[in-house]
């Protein structure tokens, strides 16, 4: 872990010093434990702020949209896939990017740790395998693999797919994980049970749009929820409106979502927002053999036509 951090700093310093990039996007320590924040480093003397540990879950591709300057960006597996999506969608130019790939071993789910230790949490340190949790007067050690974010636990693309240099050795990919376990469980329900399941799932939603803002795919100049003429989606707290919002947000991510988990991480009330997108990911994979952001050479299934596209839903 700290090896990654030193290497990231070293690369960032070199790039800023020789002027090949205007800024480096990475993480620095936040004000609370487990809350690393994204930072834009423009001067070599600020490079020491950069950190890397298991709390860098925010997707940095989100900060690249429509940027014109030369940027070096720290990218784990999912970030790099979102960068590929950005390049395909002409939101950023490949030649303006220097990607510092970070093979990732999963990010921890801070909510699970907070719910276990409450507000007494003082500090969380990370040695790669274990988390050292400091609370008032005592210390505890947790195995990192036990507290991973749900999407990281089922991730099969931990290594960056596109990078200019690496911050460490590539890690072995996980095998034999069931990425769609939750989706399959819901699929087996009857329509009424499904309806109830999502009713319960969405009941705490306060429509803060944190999931939208954290998502690197959501960059429309005017989001559909802000449109008022015509207004397709009601802006109220009505359960139907809330459902429509989540519905449409998920549809906008169809064939583009890399399951980075940023939406779920950002949700202040802990809704499992990935329930929607992972269903679409499963469909994209099963119907078109497509996983978003894996290559620059292929167009996504939703903007190409192939004679063998599935069409049994049409009468």
């Amino acid at each position: 872990m700290s090896g990654y951090q030193d290497k990231i700093k070293e690369v960032a310093l070199r790039l800023l010093k020789d002027g090949s990039v205007d800024m480096v996007i990475g993480f620095r320590k936040g004000t609370l434990p487990m809350m690393n924040e994204p930072c834009f480093i423009r001067r070599p003397e600020d490079v020491h702020q950069l950190v890397w540990d298991s709390n860098c879950g925010i997707n940095l591709a989100n900060y690249l949209t429509d940027r014109k300057e030369k940027i070096a960006v720290v990218a784990k597996g999912c970030d790099s896939r979102n960068i590929v999506t950005h390049i395909i969608e002409n939101k950023i130019k490949r030649e303006n990017l220097h990607i510092i790939g970070v093979p990732c071993q999963g990010m921890v789910d801070k909510r699970r740790i907070i719910s276990e230790f409450g507000d007494t949490l003082l500090d969380v340190a990370d040695d790669g395998e274990n988390l050292k949790i400091k609370i008032h007067g005592s210390e505890k050690s947790l195995k990192k693999t036990d507290v991973l974010q749900s999407n990281c636990a089922a991730c099969i693309h931990r290594n960056p797919v596109l990078f200019d240099e690496l911050a460490g050795e590539l890690v072995p990919e996980q095998a034999g994980v069931d990425r769609y376990a939750e989706v399959n469980r819901v699929e087996a329900m009857s329509p009424q049970e499904k309806w109830q399941y999502f009713e319960d799932l969405l009941s705490p939603c306060i429509r803060c749009y944190a999931c939208r803002n954290a998502c690197p795919l959501c960059y429309c100049p005017t989001c559909f929820v802000d449109e008022s003429r015509p207004q397709w989606v009601g802006k109220s707290q009505d359960p139907i409106d809330i459902r429509t919002f989540h519905f449409l947000r998920a549809y906008h991510c169809a064939g583009r979502c890399t399951d980075c988990g940023a939406c779920e991480r950002a949700c202040p009330v802990g809704i499992k927002v990935r329930q929607f997108t992972s269903k679409l990911n499963k469909d994209a994979f099963e119907m078109f053999g497509w996983e978003a952001g894996m290559t620059l050479d292929e167009r996504p299934p939703l903007d190409t036509y192939k004679p063998n596209d599935p069409n049994d839903f049409i009468k």
Binding site: E187, P191, W195, E199, K279, L280, I314, K315
Partner: peptide, 17 residues
């Protein structure tokens, strides 16, 4: 598929050509 996944009955949305 997502509509049905979210508990809207199959058949509320139909397509034809």
């Amino acid at each position: 598929n997502l509509m049905e996944h979210m508990g809207i009955e199959p058949g509320r949305l139909q397509f034809s050509w």
